[in-house]
Amino acid sequence: MPVVKADLGLCQGYANCIMAAGDYFDLDDDGVVILLRTEVDEADRKRVTEAANSCPVSALRVEDE
C-alpha cells in the first residue's frame, strides 16, 4: 500500500496539502504539517499525490512500500 511521508523540517505551513486532501493533512499551532493517516488507499493515490505536488517546498512524498 502506498504511504505518505512528511519532512517536518521542510514544512513551512502553506496549507496547500490540506486544501487538496484535508482527510490526510492538518497543521499544528506552529504551522507544521500533521499526518492524519500515513497509509494511502489506492483510490486516494492520485489526490494525495496531487497534494504532495502542490507543496511549495516539496515536504511531502507518496511512496510505495
Partner: peptide, 13 residues
C-alpha cells in the same frame, strides 16, 4: 497564524 490560515482557506473554498 497558521491555524487561522487553514480556517480562512477552508472558508473561502
Amino acid at each position: 497564524w497558521p491555524r487561522a490560515l487553514v480556517e480562512v482557506r477552508r472558508s473561502i473554498a
